[in-house]
Amino acid sequence: MSSTGSAATALTDSSGPPPGDRSWLYRNRIKLAPWLFLLPGLIFFFIYVIAPIFQSIWISFYAWDGLGEKEWVGMANYVELMDDDRFYTSLINNVWWLVLYMLAVPAGLAIALFLNQTVTGIRLYKSLFFFPFVISQVVVGLIFSWFYNPDFGIVGIIWGFFGAQPPAILADEDLVTFGIIAAGLWPQIAYCMILYLTGLNNVSPDQVEAGRLDNAKGWKMLWYVILPQLKPATFIAVVVTVIGALRSFDLIAIMTAGGPYGSSNVLAYYMFETALSEYGFRMGYGSAIATVLFLIMLVYISFFLWRMYQDERG
């Protein structure tokens, strides 16, 4: 850091040279300085983030166990994917995650509206409602797997109260994904809630007053006056929720490890399982799965960047 600094200062501390010289230096210090500031971070980011993306795509055309020689197989990994039932299960589960995770946005808004009052102690209430987001997903996963235990979990107790036989949610192929998503929604709702609480703080009181004068109430007020002003909060909430849904890994690893029989797998976990677990080290095949996941994410990344580009210009 300091070497960059002194270099930049050396370039710019030029008092006294002839006017022509000075203007040359002036032009060039402005050109050079940003690169000197950028260099350490850029190199770092390139090695660990940018280059690996392309390396992964490259590896996806090989068969490789991670140690020996790589063997070029062309599209074979992708062809195999198209016939892989576990891949389709993961893909469908990813869609469920994306769709159901979106519930966090309206739910977060609902809680934010509920808490947007100024009674005593409300600040503490807001912080405590936000609590689940601060906790590691590993802990959330453990808590919920314990909740779902039919013998002594809370699910067992509720079902028992109605005299019914409790389902073993995490052992049921049809229910397991929804059980995990429900666990994931808990912290995600908290996240969306805090985004909306901040957004509500900045809602213009004048417009709300004007709306009241026009007799707008309840839902109408929310839809026509409040929500348009909450657009930036909604945008961020949707972005982080999509990213969160596609990144879902921790909860699955903790709660089911993709089971039973791969029924709760998602692409993120299936990739890990193929490339780095007891099922063998199929790095090439794993990279092909990762590439598919990356392409899905790329849709959202492009959308986000496009929005940012509009903002930058506007």
Partner: peptide, 11 residues
């Protein structure tokens, strides 16, 4: 924003 898995093998 990239998924972790696309970085996993090379990293």
């Amino acid at each position: 924003f990239v998924p972790f898995q696309i970085l996993m093998v090379p990293v």
